[in-house]
Nucleic acid binder design. Structure first.
Length: 528
DNA sequence: TTAGGGTTAG
Protein backbone atom coordinates (compact mmCIF):
# COMPACT_ATOMS: atom_id res chain seq x y z
CA UNK A 1 0.00 0.00 0.00
CA UNK A 2 1.35 3.38 -0.90
CA UNK A 3 2.32 5.73 1.89
CA UNK A 4 -0.28 8.38 0.90
CA UNK A 5 -3.09 5.82 0.91
CA UNK A 6 -2.02 4.56 4.29
CA UNK A 7 -2.01 8.06 5.70
CA UNK A 8 -5.47 8.78 4.30
CA UNK A 9 -6.86 5.56 5.70
CA UNK A 10 -5.44 6.23 9.08
CA UNK A 11 -6.92 9.72 9.01
CA UNK A 12 -10.37 8.36 8.11
CA UNK A 13 -10.03 5.73 10.78
CA UNK A 14 -9.23 8.33 13.41
CA UNK A 15 -12.19 10.39 12.28
CA UNK A 16 -14.46 7.41 12.60
CA UNK A 17 -13.09 6.75 16.02
CA UNK A 18 -14.27 10.08 17.23
CA UNK A 19 -17.84 8.75 16.79
CA UNK A 20 -17.33 6.60 19.82
CA UNK A 21 -13.99 7.37 21.29
CA UNK A 22 -14.37 5.34 24.45
CA UNK A 23 -15.23 2.19 22.51
CA UNK A 24 -12.34 2.62 20.14
CA UNK A 25 -9.61 3.39 22.60
CA UNK A 26 -8.45 -0.23 23.01
CA UNK A 27 -8.22 -0.49 19.22
CA UNK A 28 -6.23 2.72 18.98
CA UNK A 29 -3.83 1.38 21.53
CA UNK A 30 -3.30 -2.03 20.03
CA UNK A 31 -4.14 -1.89 16.30
CA UNK A 32 -2.26 -0.50 13.36
CA UNK A 33 -3.30 0.83 9.98
CA UNK A 34 -4.19 -2.63 8.61
CA UNK A 35 -7.08 -2.61 10.96
CA UNK A 36 -7.97 0.84 9.78
CA UNK A 37 -8.08 -0.55 6.25
CA UNK A 38 -10.29 -3.41 7.34
CA UNK A 39 -12.56 -1.03 9.13
CA UNK A 40 -12.70 1.29 6.16
CA UNK A 41 -13.65 -1.56 3.80
CA UNK A 42 -16.09 -3.39 5.99
CA UNK A 43 -17.74 -0.64 7.96
CA UNK A 44 -18.70 2.45 6.00
CA UNK A 45 -19.42 5.45 8.22
CA UNK A 46 -23.16 4.78 7.96
CA UNK A 47 -22.52 1.48 9.72
CA UNK A 48 -20.50 2.63 12.69
CA UNK A 49 -19.91 0.45 15.72
CA UNK A 50 -22.88 1.85 17.61
CA UNK A 51 -25.35 0.93 14.87
CA UNK A 52 -23.74 -2.49 14.45
CA UNK A 53 -24.08 -3.15 18.18
CA UNK A 54 -27.69 -2.00 18.11
CA UNK A 55 -28.43 -4.37 15.26
CA UNK A 56 -26.60 -7.16 17.06
CA UNK A 57 -28.65 -6.54 20.22
CA UNK A 58 -31.90 -6.55 18.23
CA UNK A 59 -31.09 -9.98 16.75
CA UNK A 60 -30.21 -11.30 20.20
CA UNK A 61 -33.47 -9.92 21.65
CA UNK A 62 -35.40 -11.68 18.91
CA UNK A 63 -33.63 -15.01 19.51
CA UNK A 64 -31.88 -14.82 16.14
CA UNK A 65 -28.49 -15.90 17.43
CA UNK A 66 -27.21 -17.35 14.11
CA UNK A 67 -27.93 -14.03 12.36
CA UNK A 68 -26.32 -12.17 15.26
CA UNK A 69 -23.30 -14.46 14.94
CA UNK A 70 -22.99 -13.71 11.19
CA UNK A 71 -23.14 -9.98 11.81
CA UNK A 72 -20.67 -10.29 14.68
CA UNK A 73 -18.23 -12.23 12.48
CA UNK A 74 -18.50 -9.57 9.77
CA UNK A 75 -17.78 -6.74 12.19
CA UNK A 76 -14.14 -5.90 11.66
CA UNK A 77 -14.07 -3.61 14.63
CA UNK A 78 -15.67 -4.70 17.85
CA UNK A 79 -15.85 -3.20 21.28
CA UNK A 80 -16.58 -4.78 24.64
CA UNK A 81 -20.32 -4.19 24.14
CA UNK A 82 -20.21 -6.18 20.87
CA UNK A 83 -18.56 -9.09 22.67
CA UNK A 84 -20.99 -8.92 25.61
CA UNK A 85 -23.98 -8.82 23.29
CA UNK A 86 -22.70 -11.82 21.34
CA UNK A 87 -22.07 -13.68 24.61
CA UNK A 88 -25.65 -12.88 25.72
CA UNK A 89 -26.97 -14.31 22.45
CA UNK A 90 -25.02 -17.54 22.89
CA UNK A 91 -26.16 -17.75 26.51
CA UNK A 92 -29.81 -17.29 25.49
CA UNK A 93 -29.36 -20.01 22.86
CA UNK A 94 -28.10 -22.31 25.65
CA UNK A 95 -24.77 -22.79 23.96
CA UNK A 96 -22.15 -22.96 26.76
CA UNK A 97 -19.50 -24.23 24.32
CA UNK A 98 -20.09 -21.18 22.16
CA UNK A 99 -19.91 -18.89 25.18
CA UNK A 100 -16.63 -20.46 26.28
CA UNK A 101 -15.14 -20.13 22.79
CA UNK A 102 -16.31 -16.53 22.42
CA UNK A 103 -15.03 -15.57 25.88
CA UNK A 104 -11.60 -17.08 25.15
CA UNK A 105 -11.40 -15.29 21.80
CA UNK A 106 -12.42 -12.03 23.42
CA UNK A 107 -9.53 -12.29 25.86
CA UNK A 108 -7.08 -13.42 23.18
CA UNK A 109 -8.03 -10.33 21.20
CA UNK A 110 -7.00 -8.21 24.15
CA UNK A 111 -10.39 -7.03 25.44
CA UNK A 112 -10.89 -6.49 29.14
CA UNK A 113 -14.00 -8.37 30.41
CA UNK A 114 -16.53 -6.11 32.13
CA UNK A 115 -19.18 -6.83 34.78
CA UNK A 116 -21.57 -7.65 31.92
CA UNK A 117 -19.14 -10.20 30.50
CA UNK A 118 -18.59 -12.01 33.78
CA UNK A 119 -22.24 -12.28 34.78
CA UNK A 120 -23.24 -13.48 31.30
CA UNK A 121 -20.49 -16.10 31.11
CA UNK A 122 -21.16 -17.40 34.63
CA UNK A 123 -24.88 -17.71 33.95
CA UNK A 124 -24.21 -19.57 30.71
CA UNK A 125 -22.10 -22.12 32.60
CA UNK A 126 -24.75 -22.93 35.26
CA UNK A 127 -25.83 -26.53 35.19
CA UNK A 128 -23.21 -27.46 32.58
CA UNK A 129 -19.81 -29.15 32.71
CA UNK A 130 -18.27 -25.68 32.33
CA UNK A 131 -19.21 -24.90 35.93
CA UNK A 132 -15.78 -26.29 36.90
CA UNK A 133 -14.47 -22.93 35.68
CA UNK A 134 -16.33 -20.94 38.37
CA UNK A 135 -13.39 -20.56 40.72
CA UNK A 136 -11.05 -19.62 37.84
CA UNK A 137 -13.46 -16.93 36.75
CA UNK A 138 -13.64 -15.80 40.37
CA UNK A 139 -9.84 -15.42 40.35
CA UNK A 140 -10.11 -13.34 37.18
CA UNK A 141 -12.79 -11.19 38.85
CA UNK A 142 -10.42 -10.45 41.72
CA UNK A 143 -7.58 -9.63 39.29
CA UNK A 144 -9.81 -7.27 37.31
CA UNK A 145 -11.11 -5.65 40.52
CA UNK A 146 -14.75 -6.50 39.72
CA UNK A 147 -15.58 -8.14 43.08
CA UNK A 148 -17.58 -5.19 44.31
CA UNK A 149 -20.16 -5.47 41.53
CA UNK A 150 -23.54 -6.77 42.72
CA UNK A 151 -24.14 -8.31 39.28
CA UNK A 152 -20.87 -10.23 39.38
CA UNK A 153 -21.51 -11.15 43.02
CA UNK A 154 -24.97 -12.60 42.30
CA UNK A 155 -23.60 -14.59 39.37
CA UNK A 156 -20.71 -15.97 41.44
CA UNK A 157 -23.07 -16.94 44.28
CA UNK A 158 -25.19 -18.93 41.86
CA UNK A 159 -22.09 -20.40 40.26
CA UNK A 160 -20.75 -21.64 43.60
CA UNK A 161 -24.19 -23.03 44.50
CA UNK A 162 -24.07 -24.95 41.24
CA UNK A 163 -20.85 -26.67 42.29
CA UNK A 164 -22.08 -27.13 45.86
CA UNK A 165 -19.55 -24.84 47.53
CA UNK A 166 -21.47 -23.32 50.44
CA UNK A 167 -18.46 -21.67 52.08
CA UNK A 168 -17.34 -19.96 48.88
CA UNK A 169 -20.77 -18.56 48.10
CA UNK A 170 -21.23 -17.04 51.54
CA UNK A 171 -17.73 -15.54 51.31
CA UNK A 172 -18.57 -13.97 47.94
CA UNK A 173 -21.70 -12.43 49.46
CA UNK A 174 -19.79 -11.09 52.45
CA UNK A 175 -17.28 -9.44 50.14
CA UNK A 176 -19.90 -7.40 48.25
CA UNK A 177 -19.59 -3.95 49.83
CA UNK A 178 -23.00 -2.55 48.77
CA UNK A 179 -25.32 -5.57 48.76
CA UNK A 180 -28.64 -5.04 47.07
CA UNK A 181 -31.90 -6.99 47.25
CA UNK A 182 -31.04 -9.11 44.21
CA UNK A 183 -27.75 -10.34 45.61
CA UNK A 184 -29.51 -11.26 48.88
CA UNK A 185 -32.19 -13.07 46.88
CA UNK A 186 -29.45 -14.99 45.07
CA UNK A 187 -28.06 -15.99 48.48
CA UNK A 188 -31.48 -17.18 49.73
CA UNK A 189 -32.11 -19.34 46.68
CA UNK A 190 -28.55 -20.66 46.67
CA UNK A 191 -28.80 -21.80 50.30
CA UNK A 192 -32.13 -23.38 49.46
CA UNK A 193 -30.57 -25.14 46.48
CA UNK A 194 -27.99 -26.68 48.79
CA UNK A 195 -30.71 -27.78 51.24
CA UNK A 196 -29.69 -25.22 53.89
CA UNK A 197 -33.23 -24.06 54.68
CA UNK A 198 -32.30 -22.61 58.08
CA UNK A 199 -29.52 -20.49 56.58
CA UNK A 200 -31.83 -19.30 53.83
CA UNK A 201 -34.54 -18.36 56.32
CA UNK A 202 -31.98 -16.54 58.47
CA UNK A 203 -30.76 -14.48 55.48
CA UNK A 204 -34.38 -13.70 54.56
CA UNK A 205 -35.20 -12.64 58.14
CA UNK A 206 -32.36 -10.15 58.34
CA UNK A 207 -32.73 -8.66 54.87
CA UNK A 208 -33.08 -4.87 55.17
CA UNK A 209 -35.41 -4.82 52.19
CA UNK A 210 -37.55 -7.62 50.70
CA UNK A 211 -39.38 -7.66 47.43
CA UNK A 212 -41.74 -10.12 45.77
CA UNK A 213 -38.78 -12.10 44.41
CA UNK A 214 -37.35 -12.53 47.94
CA UNK A 215 -40.66 -14.02 49.10
CA UNK A 216 -41.04 -16.19 46.03
CA UNK A 217 -37.47 -17.49 46.38
CA UNK A 218 -38.27 -18.58 49.92
CA UNK A 219 -41.50 -20.32 48.86
CA UNK A 220 -39.80 -22.02 45.94
CA UNK A 221 -36.88 -23.08 48.16
CA UNK A 222 -39.18 -24.75 50.70
CA UNK A 223 -40.99 -26.56 47.88
CA UNK A 224 -37.74 -27.88 46.44
CA UNK A 225 -36.79 -29.08 49.92
CA UNK A 226 -40.11 -30.99 50.17
CA UNK A 227 -41.53 -28.61 52.81
CA UNK A 228 -44.79 -27.96 51.00
CA UNK A 229 -46.78 -26.92 54.09
CA UNK A 230 -44.08 -24.50 55.20
CA UNK A 231 -44.03 -23.11 51.64
CA UNK A 232 -47.78 -22.55 51.79
CA UNK A 233 -47.59 -20.77 55.11
CA UNK A 234 -44.94 -18.39 53.71
CA UNK A 235 -47.03 -17.97 50.55
CA UNK A 236 -50.10 -17.04 52.63
CA UNK A 237 -48.09 -14.35 54.40
CA UNK A 238 -47.24 -12.60 51.14
CA UNK A 239 -49.01 -9.28 50.95
CA UNK A 240 -48.45 -8.98 47.24
CA UNK A 241 -48.51 -11.89 44.78
CA UNK A 242 -47.83 -11.99 41.09
CA UNK A 243 -48.12 -14.62 38.37
CA UNK A 244 -44.73 -16.10 39.27
CA UNK A 245 -45.51 -16.54 42.97
CA UNK A 246 -48.89 -18.13 42.19
CA UNK A 247 -47.27 -20.44 39.65
CA UNK A 248 -44.48 -21.47 42.03
CA UNK A 249 -47.02 -22.55 44.65
CA UNK A 250 -49.33 -24.29 42.15
CA UNK A 251 -46.47 -26.20 40.54
CA UNK A 252 -45.20 -27.05 44.03
CA UNK A 253 -48.45 -28.87 44.75
CA UNK A 254 -48.25 -30.64 41.39
CA UNK A 255 -44.67 -31.78 42.07
CA UNK A 256 -45.91 -33.22 45.37
CA UNK A 257 -48.81 -35.01 43.67
CA UNK A 258 -51.33 -32.76 45.48
CA UNK A 259 -53.37 -32.14 42.37
CA UNK A 260 -56.58 -31.02 44.04
CA UNK A 261 -54.68 -28.47 46.17
CA UNK A 262 -53.07 -27.19 42.97
CA UNK A 263 -56.47 -26.78 41.29
CA UNK A 264 -58.00 -25.12 44.37
CA UNK A 265 -55.15 -22.64 44.43
CA UNK A 266 -55.56 -21.97 40.71
CA UNK A 267 -59.20 -21.02 41.37
CA UNK A 268 -58.05 -18.68 44.16
CA UNK A 269 -55.57 -17.16 41.73
CA UNK A 270 -58.32 -16.47 39.20
CA UNK A 271 -60.51 -14.98 41.92
CA UNK A 272 -57.68 -12.62 42.89
CA UNK A 273 -57.72 -11.43 39.26
CA UNK A 274 -54.12 -12.48 38.65
CA UNK A 275 -53.53 -13.46 35.04
CA UNK A 276 -52.08 -16.96 34.45
CA UNK A 277 -49.35 -17.38 31.85
CA UNK A 278 -47.97 -20.37 29.93
CA UNK A 279 -45.95 -21.46 32.99
CA UNK A 280 -49.10 -21.49 35.14
CA UNK A 281 -51.14 -23.31 32.52
CA UNK A 282 -48.52 -26.05 32.08
CA UNK A 283 -48.67 -26.82 35.80
CA UNK A 284 -52.45 -26.60 35.98
CA UNK A 285 -52.83 -28.95 33.01
CA UNK A 286 -50.47 -31.32 34.76
CA UNK A 287 -52.76 -31.19 37.79
CA UNK A 288 -55.78 -32.00 35.58
CA UNK A 289 -53.86 -34.94 34.10
CA UNK A 290 -52.84 -36.04 37.59
CA UNK A 291 -56.44 -36.43 38.70
CA UNK A 292 -57.65 -37.54 35.26
CA UNK A 293 -60.21 -34.77 35.05
CA UNK A 294 -61.07 -34.26 31.40
CA UNK A 295 -63.75 -31.70 32.25
CA UNK A 296 -61.35 -29.44 34.14
CA UNK A 297 -58.68 -29.99 31.50
CA UNK A 298 -61.10 -28.85 28.81
CA UNK A 299 -62.02 -25.78 30.84
CA UNK A 300 -58.36 -24.90 31.27
CA UNK A 301 -57.87 -25.34 27.52
CA UNK A 302 -60.76 -22.91 26.90
CA UNK A 303 -59.20 -20.38 29.29
CA UNK A 304 -55.91 -20.57 27.39
CA UNK A 305 -57.74 -19.77 24.16
CA UNK A 306 -59.98 -17.09 25.70
CA UNK A 307 -57.06 -15.28 27.29
CA UNK A 308 -55.13 -15.47 24.03
CA UNK A 309 -52.12 -16.99 25.79
CA UNK A 310 -49.29 -17.07 23.22
CA UNK A 311 -48.38 -20.49 21.85
CA UNK A 312 -45.65 -22.21 23.83
CA UNK A 313 -44.20 -25.60 23.07
CA UNK A 314 -44.15 -26.72 26.71
CA UNK A 315 -47.70 -25.57 27.44
CA UNK A 316 -49.01 -27.30 24.30
CA UNK A 317 -47.12 -30.47 25.21
CA UNK A 318 -48.85 -30.38 28.59
CA UNK A 319 -52.16 -30.11 26.72
CA UNK A 320 -51.31 -33.16 24.59
CA UNK A 321 -50.31 -35.08 27.69
CA UNK A 322 -53.42 -33.97 29.61
CA UNK A 323 -55.79 -35.11 26.85
CA UNK A 324 -53.97 -38.44 26.51
CA UNK A 325 -53.98 -39.07 30.26
CA UNK A 326 -57.64 -38.02 30.61
CA UNK A 327 -58.74 -40.51 27.98
CA UNK A 328 -59.37 -38.24 25.00
CA UNK A 329 -56.58 -39.39 22.68
CA UNK A 330 -58.25 -37.86 19.62
CA UNK A 331 -58.12 -34.40 21.26
CA UNK A 332 -54.44 -35.10 22.02
CA UNK A 333 -53.84 -35.84 18.32
CA UNK A 334 -55.73 -32.69 17.40
CA UNK A 335 -53.63 -30.42 19.66
CA UNK A 336 -50.48 -32.21 18.54
CA UNK A 337 -51.35 -31.64 14.87
CA UNK A 338 -51.97 -27.94 15.44
CA UNK A 339 -48.62 -27.29 17.09
CA UNK A 340 -46.33 -25.13 14.95
CA UNK A 341 -43.27 -26.32 16.86
CA UNK A 342 -42.70 -29.74 18.39
CA UNK A 343 -39.76 -31.01 20.34
CA UNK A 344 -38.58 -34.39 21.63
CA UNK A 345 -40.88 -34.24 24.67
CA UNK A 346 -43.89 -33.42 22.47
CA UNK A 347 -43.22 -36.46 20.29
CA UNK A 348 -42.65 -38.67 23.31
CA UNK A 349 -45.96 -37.50 24.80
CA UNK A 350 -47.99 -38.41 21.74
CA UNK A 351 -46.15 -41.72 21.22
CA UNK A 352 -46.56 -42.64 24.91
CA UNK A 353 -50.21 -41.56 24.89
CA UNK A 354 -50.92 -43.68 21.81
CA UNK A 355 -49.17 -46.67 23.40
CA UNK A 356 -51.21 -46.38 26.60
CA UNK A 357 -54.39 -46.26 24.52
CA UNK A 358 -53.40 -49.48 22.75
CA UNK A 359 -52.86 -47.67 19.44
CA UNK A 360 -49.63 -49.44 18.56
CA UNK A 361 -49.70 -48.67 14.85
CA UNK A 362 -50.33 -44.97 15.42
CA UNK A 363 -47.55 -44.86 18.00
CA UNK A 364 -45.12 -46.42 15.55
CA UNK A 365 -46.31 -44.15 12.77
CA UNK A 366 -45.58 -41.10 14.94
CA UNK A 367 -42.17 -42.57 15.74
CA UNK A 368 -41.35 -42.84 12.02
CA UNK A 369 -42.52 -39.27 11.43
CA UNK A 370 -40.46 -38.04 14.34
CA UNK A 371 -37.31 -39.55 12.80
CA UNK A 372 -38.20 -38.06 9.42
CA UNK A 373 -38.54 -34.63 11.05
CA UNK A 374 -34.95 -34.99 12.24
CA UNK A 375 -35.76 -35.30 15.96
CA UNK A 376 -33.39 -37.75 17.64
CA UNK A 377 -35.19 -40.24 19.89
CA UNK A 378 -34.04 -40.73 23.48
CA UNK A 379 -34.49 -43.49 26.06
CA UNK A 380 -38.05 -42.34 26.87
CA UNK A 381 -39.02 -42.65 23.20
CA UNK A 382 -37.87 -46.28 23.19
CA UNK A 383 -39.72 -47.17 26.39
CA UNK A 384 -42.84 -45.80 24.66
CA UNK A 385 -42.40 -47.56 21.31
CA UNK A 386 -41.41 -50.86 22.94
CA UNK A 387 -44.46 -50.75 25.21
CA UNK A 388 -46.61 -49.94 22.14
CA UNK A 389 -45.24 -53.11 20.52
CA UNK A 390 -45.97 -55.05 23.72
CA UNK A 391 -49.59 -53.94 23.85
CA UNK A 392 -50.00 -54.57 20.13
CA UNK A 393 -48.37 -58.02 20.20
CA UNK A 394 -45.77 -56.88 17.64
CA UNK A 395 -42.88 -59.07 18.72
CA UNK A 396 -40.73 -58.82 15.60
CA UNK A 397 -41.11 -55.05 15.31
CA UNK A 398 -40.24 -54.70 19.00
CA UNK A 399 -37.12 -56.84 18.57
CA UNK A 400 -36.06 -54.78 15.57
CA UNK A 401 -36.50 -51.51 17.47
CA UNK A 402 -34.72 -52.88 20.55
CA UNK A 403 -31.75 -53.91 18.40
CA UNK A 404 -31.68 -50.57 16.62
CA UNK A 405 -31.33 -48.61 19.86
CA UNK A 406 -27.57 -49.04 20.20
CA UNK A 407 -26.74 -49.75 16.58
CA UNK A 408 -28.66 -46.91 14.94
CA UNK A 409 -29.18 -44.33 17.68
CA UNK A 410 -26.31 -44.96 20.10
CA UNK A 411 -28.67 -45.47 23.05
CA UNK A 412 -27.71 -48.21 25.50
CA UNK A 413 -30.86 -50.13 26.56
CA UNK A 414 -31.51 -49.72 30.29
CA UNK A 415 -33.45 -51.87 32.72
CA UNK A 416 -36.76 -50.28 31.67
CA UNK A 417 -36.20 -51.28 28.03
CA UNK A 418 -35.39 -54.84 29.09
CA UNK A 419 -38.58 -54.85 31.19
CA UNK A 420 -40.53 -53.80 28.07
CA UNK A 421 -38.96 -56.68 26.13
CA UNK A 422 -39.70 -59.18 28.89
CA UNK A 423 -43.27 -57.91 28.87
CA UNK A 424 -43.38 -58.10 25.05
CA UNK A 425 -42.20 -61.74 24.95
CA UNK A 426 -44.27 -62.61 28.02
CA UNK A 427 -47.56 -61.24 26.68
CA UNK A 428 -46.96 -63.11 23.43
CA UNK A 429 -46.50 -66.31 25.46
CA UNK A 430 -42.83 -66.67 24.60
CA UNK A 431 -41.72 -67.19 28.21
CA UNK A 432 -38.52 -68.96 27.21
CA UNK A 433 -37.31 -65.98 25.22
CA UNK A 434 -38.24 -63.68 28.14
CA UNK A 435 -36.21 -65.80 30.54
CA UNK A 436 -33.29 -65.96 28.12
CA UNK A 437 -33.29 -62.17 27.81
CA UNK A 438 -33.19 -61.77 31.60
CA UNK A 439 -30.26 -64.17 31.85
CA UNK A 440 -28.33 -62.25 29.19
CA UNK A 441 -28.95 -58.82 30.68
CA UNK A 442 -25.82 -56.72 31.27
CA UNK A 443 -27.03 -55.80 34.77
CA UNK A 444 -28.84 -57.33 37.72
CA UNK A 445 -32.58 -57.67 37.08
CA UNK A 446 -34.71 -55.46 39.34
CA UNK A 447 -38.24 -55.84 40.70
CA UNK A 448 -39.79 -54.37 37.53
CA UNK A 449 -38.19 -57.09 35.38
CA UNK A 450 -39.37 -59.93 37.62
CA UNK A 451 -42.85 -58.43 37.96
CA UNK A 452 -43.07 -58.29 34.15
CA UNK A 453 -42.08 -61.97 33.98
CA UNK A 454 -44.45 -62.90 36.80
CA UNK A 455 -47.28 -61.05 35.04
CA UNK A 456 -46.61 -63.02 31.89
CA UNK A 457 -46.59 -66.25 33.91
CA UNK A 458 -49.96 -65.25 35.34
CA UNK A 459 -51.29 -64.60 31.88
CA UNK A 460 -50.12 -67.97 30.57
CA UNK A 461 -50.51 -70.02 33.78
CA UNK A 462 -46.86 -70.93 34.05
CA UNK A 463 -46.51 -72.12 37.63
CA UNK A 464 -42.84 -73.13 37.80
CA UNK A 465 -41.40 -70.00 36.22
CA UNK A 466 -43.95 -67.86 38.08
CA UNK A 467 -42.78 -69.22 41.42
CA UNK A 468 -39.19 -68.62 40.45
CA UNK A 469 -39.96 -64.99 39.53
CA UNK A 470 -41.92 -64.57 42.79
CA UNK A 471 -38.91 -65.78 44.78
CA UNK A 472 -36.67 -63.27 43.02
CA UNK A 473 -39.16 -60.49 43.78
CA UNK A 474 -39.31 -61.59 47.40
CA UNK A 475 -35.53 -61.36 47.66
CA UNK A 476 -35.66 -57.74 46.51
CA UNK A 477 -38.91 -56.65 48.14
CA UNK A 478 -40.79 -59.16 50.23
CA UNK A 479 -44.20 -57.46 50.37
CA UNK A 480 -44.85 -56.86 46.69
CA UNK A 481 -48.60 -57.27 46.09
CA UNK A 482 -48.07 -58.77 42.64
CA UNK A 483 -46.51 -61.92 44.11
CA UNK A 484 -49.52 -63.15 46.02
CA UNK A 485 -52.28 -62.08 43.68
CA UNK A 486 -50.55 -63.51 40.60
CA UNK A 487 -49.47 -66.76 42.23
CA UNK A 488 -52.93 -67.15 43.72
CA UNK A 489 -54.40 -66.69 40.23
CA UNK A 490 -52.08 -69.30 38.69
CA UNK A 491 -52.81 -71.81 41.46
CA UNK A 492 -56.53 -71.11 41.13
CA UNK A 493 -56.44 -71.79 37.40
CA UNK A 494 -54.68 -75.08 38.08
CA UNK A 495 -57.20 -76.00 40.78
CA UNK A 496 -54.69 -76.00 43.64
CA UNK A 497 -57.19 -74.46 46.03
CA UNK A 498 -55.21 -75.04 49.25
CA UNK A 499 -52.48 -72.78 47.95
CA UNK A 500 -55.00 -70.17 46.84
CA UNK A 501 -56.47 -70.02 50.33
CA UNK A 502 -52.98 -69.88 51.81
CA UNK A 503 -52.06 -66.88 49.62
CA UNK A 504 -55.30 -65.08 50.43
CA UNK A 505 -54.57 -65.61 54.14
CA UNK A 506 -51.09 -64.13 53.77
CA UNK A 507 -52.50 -61.18 51.83
CA UNK A 508 -55.02 -60.55 54.56
CA UNK A 509 -52.38 -60.79 57.29
CA UNK A 510 -50.05 -58.43 55.47
CA UNK A 511 -52.93 -56.07 54.58
CA UNK A 512 -52.12 -56.44 50.92
CA UNK A 513 -54.87 -55.36 48.58
CA UNK A 514 -55.05 -56.41 44.99
CA UNK A 515 -54.32 -53.29 42.97
CA UNK A 516 -57.40 -52.32 41.02
CA UNK A 517 -57.14 -50.87 37.57
CA UNK A 518 -58.09 -47.20 37.64
CA UNK A 519 -60.92 -45.96 35.46
CA UNK A 520 -61.10 -42.52 33.98
CA UNK A 521 -64.87 -42.43 34.36
CA UNK A 522 -64.56 -43.32 38.04
CA UNK A 523 -62.08 -40.55 38.68
CA UNK A 524 -64.41 -38.06 36.96
CA UNK A 525 -66.94 -38.76 39.67
CA UNK A 526 -64.34 -38.61 42.37
CA UNK A 527 -63.44 -35.07 41.47
CA UNK A 528 -66.94 -33.61 41.50
C1' DT B 1 -25.90 -0.59 22.22
C1' DT B 2 -24.66 -5.30 26.55
C1' DA B 3 -25.83 -8.19 32.43
C1' DG B 4 -28.31 -10.22 37.98
C1' DG B 5 -32.48 -12.65 41.89
C1' DG B 6 -38.36 -16.28 41.82
C1' DT B 7 -42.18 -20.17 37.46
C1' DT B 8 -43.63 -24.99 32.78
C1' DA B 9 -43.84 -30.64 29.74
C1' DG B 10 -42.65 -36.90 28.33
Amino acid sequence: MRRLERTLLLKDYRQLCTLSKASFSPMLDTRGSDHARLYFDGNPPSRNILSCNRMLAAHVRNDQTPIAQDLFDQMLVKDVVSWNTMLTGLQKAKNPHGVNRCFLQMRRDGFRPSEYTISTVLNAFLGTAFNVLVSQIHALVVRLALSSSVFVGSALIKGYADIGDQIALSRVFDEIPMKDVSSSNALVSSYMELGCTLEAQRVFDVMPERNIVSWTSLVSGYINNKRINKARSVFDKMREKNVVSWTVMISGYVKNQKFMDALDLFLLMLKSRALPNHFTFSSVLDACAGCSSLILGQQVHSSILKLGTPEDVIMSTSLVDMYAKCGDIEAAFCVFGSMPRKNLVTWNSIIGGSARHGLATRALDKFERMIKCGVRPDEVTFVNVLSACGHGGMVEKGEKLFNSMKAKFGIEPNVEHYACMVDLYGRAGNLEEAEKLIQGMPFQPDVVIWVALLGACGLHSSLQLGEFAAKEIEKLRNDHPAIYSTLSKIHGERGVWDSVLEFRKIMKEKHIQKQNAGSWVESQYRIR
